[in-house]
Write a protein that binds this DNA or RNA. Structure first.
Length: 828
RNA sequence: GCGAAAGUGGCGGAAUUGGUAGACGCGCUGGAUUUAGGAUCCAGUUCCGUGAGGAGUGGGGGUUCGAGUCCCCCCUUUCGCACCA
């Protein structure tokens, strides 16, 4: 009975994992040689207790790169840790009565054990967890640095309120008006909380994107869009009755003569100062109430009807001294610009719709070209493009950028306006009214106001509490022992800030803690940070494009400004891996019941098979549809091709750093040597692009062509075998290490060096040249690699198939691409 | 609506800078071996055509000796932002 080859994967896996741990293969030097370091980082992970396919893919990509860099002789930093604060722990506490800390730490244990079984080359001696006091002490320190420089501010503001989790959310945590985590419809609420003034860095955050050539364009585009910088003019309109200034922001100063009404956001406190009376007062009050009750999503619905109400008051356009009606309208956003707009119905689609609905005047001030409509009443839609100004006094005829500049300059000269830049980006709201987070290290004193907790009293540790049920205020507020303190400044009675920080604060600086994870005196050593940073390759999902990836750039710039680091971008290269879907292209989720566990696959087929299958299915940045079919090919390759390689090994102990002399090789030896070098070249390029699928296919081809019976040189035979093992090692580390060890080579394959190709041996003796006639392929000829163009042409013109297309016709031109093709251009 | 990316065999996907489209793998077909095989090996496999040959990278134009690759228009899909004045 023919026996199926059975490989004891588990034995090989555990043997090498143990050996690697004992030999501290992944242990990193404290201070690397700055020119020879590689910081490989995968994104901070929430310890949910299980490892799914997405994690698996993320980590094996990082692992392959880390191992290859290690082979290339780099000092590799490849750490891992846990983004361990957050709501799931609190939910578990509420539902099952387990303390969030206990729940989190036990999840970390489980996740860590699983990851260790996967054989990822993390340096576990640098593991960190953001929920532990030795870490969050420094998160608090970061907060205080911000506070001291006026970048952490407390203010009352309209916030996104999650009515399910009963906490504030950052804009980045709201998707289409719904809370990303809980799924609840987000409400608007006015609340006091802490903000990081990330808007102070808006320009740098946009401009420095140009310093990141190795970041994907889509991420950079998303960040630009998110920050949303726009240049324009702020114009001071005046409220007729009170004389109060009513500044508005516009990017279209060239339409200022077309203003026919003005509109204020319902949230604006300006309304309170209008001294409304009678009927208008009541209507406006009613309107504000209903508008504010509407959720963001209802208000933002692009198709939704715009509505509003007239205040009974008028504003004066400083350019024309004309009085226009002042409205309250919910299409005006309180949080952008000044919360009020000038309305130009003829040249803005929203204003047009609004004016039509409420029968407000429409005045054309921009010519739309040709026989343009100049009567607003006859317009079908707003003309929003640039064109020559008309009905605009001294500015008539100017258009586009020139017009905008002229109007803006005039406004500045007359002191009725100023050029300003506005951003969509808002200050980062970081207060959370929840328990399981990093306490805000601030004490509120009646006399001194908010005071930072002195450094020597950090960390402010989380107290134990009885009840985590969300009630809309932090559970810490109900712990008097925690809350009641004396003011560090005046010694008087004071209270702690009861809120905890957004977990994105914790993950904004973790990459720096890894360089010095056990430092008790500082968040990290500057020397180590400057040596290891920036991250050379940062791998994670695209989901963080406008959240974490902006925050951690912001922190980096801030720390540079206060002198802690000397670089201004945290990651040189960013790579977003594609999602893992099920075989039908559906997102894997527990509710759909289509989750395939990488652990189950590894248990059944072995870790290296699971890894190769994931790598081989698609390039790393593409979405993958995981199916059993994808495993078949690589499993056969590993079992039937890779593992038996040593059967033909001849123990000649070749020096792998030494090239052969191509001229000394003949016949098959020569061919396979060329193939070997082509493979090395192709693999190296594939690794650089993180396209491991093509690296695997290159090694498959090499082994397909490899035929030990035809190789005469023992050293060459063994070089092919050993280099194939080296090339596949970052992708299938356990198998490769096993083979390497069985070959009798010294030490770990991961210390053996990455193969270099012999530049003299990537072209074979005979090359195939494509012969085209008028650009169409007619024949393919084999010629010696060193053939001259004349020699190639001679063979080409001898070809019957070529003759059939050239005979009797005049050759006009011959294009020869050396080593590739000959194109004969004929006429007639 | 705005912005970005992508459309290649039955399928996953190859093809740095324009230079033999379909590497590698799955699947399928035929054969070998075998008591048998869901094992292994060999051969074939873009489509049309018996063939010579022709067509072919979402569709249509263009640049070029030559286009999957560059330019223009259109279609489709995915993602992001969505009243940002």
């Amino acid at each position: 009975m023919a026996e199926k080859k059975r490989i004891d994967f588990k034995q090989i896996e555990s043997k090498w994992q143990q050996r690697w741990a004992e030999d501290e293969l992944y242990r990193t030097a404290d201070l690397p040689d700055k020119d020879n370091k590689f910081y490989m980082l995968v994104m901070f992970a929430y310890p949910s207790g299980d490892i799914h396919m997405g994690h698996f893919r993320n980590y094996i990509i990082g692992d392959a790169v880390a191992r290859q860099q290690m082979m290339m002789g780099k000092n590799v930093l490849h750490p891992f840790g846990w983004d361990a604060f957050g709501l799931p722990a609190e939910r578990a506490a509420i539902q099952r009565g387990i303390h969030p800390e206990e729940w989190t730490l036990s999840n970390i244990e489980v996740s860590k054990r699983t990851l260790q079984k996967v054989g990822i080359s993390f340096d576990w001696s640098r593991e960190i967890a953001s929920c532990l006091p030795d870490y969050y002490k420094w998160t608090q320190w970061m907060f205080i640095q911000m506070f001291k420089r006026g970048l952490a501010v407390r203010k009352k503001s309209w916030v996104n309120w999650d009515p399910v989790d009963k906490t504030v959310l950052a804009n980045e945590q709201v998707k289409d008006g719904f809370a990303e985590r809980s799924g609840a419809k987000v409400e608007k609420k006015e609340l006091v909380g802490w903000y990081f003034k990330i808007t102070d860095y808006a320009d740098q955050l946009i401009d420095d994107l140009d310093k990141l050539p190795e970041w994907p364009d889509n991420v950079k585009a998303m960040q630009r869009e998110w920050i949303g910088r726009s240049h324009g003019l702020e114009v001071d309109f005046v409220i007729e009755e009170t004389g109060e200034k009513l500044p508005i922001f516009t990017t279209r100063p060239d339409t200022i003569y077309g203003v026919t009404y003005m509109a204020i956001a319902p949230e604006s406190d300006l309304i309170d100062r209008l001294k409304l009376d009678g009927e208008h007062a009541k209507m406006v009050a009613d309107y504000r109430q209903t508008a504010l009750a509407r959720s963001e999503i209802d208000r933002a619905a692009a198709t939704g009807e715009k509505d509003g109400v007239f205040t009974g008051k008028y504003a004066i356009n400083p350019f024309t001294n004309e009085r226009v009606q002042l409205w309250v309208a919910d299409y005006v956003l309180a949080g952008y610009g000044t919360g009020a707009v000038m309305a130009v119905p003829a040249h803005d689609t929203r204003d047009f719709a609004f004016a039509r609905k409420y029968k407000l005047p429409i005045r054309v001030v921009i010519q739309s070209g040709g026989d343009s409509v100049t009567d607003g009443a006859l317009l079908d839609e707003a003309f929003v493009e640039y064109g020559p100004m008309m009905n605009s006094d001294r500015f008539n005829g100017l258009s586009g950028a020139e017009a905008i500049a002229a109007v803006s300059d005039f406004a500045e000269k007359e002191s009725i306006g100023r050029k300003v830049t506005n951003y969509k980006l808002k200050d980062w709201s970081i207060s959370r009214q929840r328990y399981w987070g990093c306490p805000i290290p601030i004490v509120h004193c009646e006399k001194c106001g908010p005071v930072a907790v002195p450094d020597d009293q950090l960390p402010v540790t989380l107290p134990k509490v009885e009840n985590y049920l969300p009630k809309g205020r932090s559970p810490l507020a109900d712990v008097p022992e925690f809350m009641n303190v004396t003011c560090p400044e005046c010694g008087g009675k004071a209270e702690r800030d009861p809120d905890t920080m957004d977990t994105f604060v914790c993950s904004s600086w973790y990459q720096l803690r890894y360089v010095d994870p056990h430092n008790e005196k500082e968040p990290f050593s500057r020397e180590k940070a400057n040596a290891w940073m920036p991250i050379d390759l940062y791998v994670g999902g695209i989901t963080h494009a406008t959240g974490h990836l902006i925050y951690f750039r912001f922190f980096t710039k801030f720390l540079r400004d206060i002198g802690w680091i000397d670089f201004d971008e945290p990651a040189r290269r960013l790579f977003n891996h594609g999602m893992v879907m099920d075989a039908h292209g559906e997102v894997m989720s527990k509710s759909k019941g289509n989750v395939v566990s990488p652990v189950a696959v590894m248990e059944e087929r072995g870790i290296d098979v699971a890894r190769l299958a994931m790598f081989f299915t698609a390039p790393s940045d593409k979405e993958v549809m995981w199916s059993e079919d994808g495993i078949t090919g690589v499993e056969k390759f590993l079992i039937n091709k890779l593992l038996p390689l040593l059967e033909s090994y001849r123990s000649s102990m070749p020096d792998l750093k030494q090239y052969f002399n191509l001229n000394d090789l003949t016949g098959f030896d020569r061919n396979i040597y060329v193939k070997l070098n082509q493979t090395v070249k192709k693999c190296s390029e594939s690794f650089e692009r993180l396209q491991f699928n093509t690296a695997i296919s290159a090694v498959m081809e090499l082994i397909r062509d490899y035929d030990p019976d035809k190789i005469s040189s023992d050293q060459l035979n063994d070089s092919v075998v050993l280099k194939a093992i080296q090339l596949i090692a970052p992708l299938a580390p356990h198998t490769a290490e096993e083979l390497w060890s069985l070959s009798g080579m010294d030490g770990s394959v991961f210390r053996s060096g990455w193969p270099q190709f012999d530049p003299d041996a990537i072209v074979g003796d005979m090359i195939e040249i494509a012969v085209q006639v008028n650009g169409k392929l007619r024949d393919s000829i084999n010629v010696p690699a060193d053939s001259s163009q004349d020699a190639v042409e001679q063979v080409a013109f001898d070809s019957e198939r070529v003759k059939g297309h050239t005979d009797g016709r005049q050759v006009i031109k011959k294009i020869y691409v050396p080593g590739r093709l000959l194109n004969i251009v004929v006429k007639g």
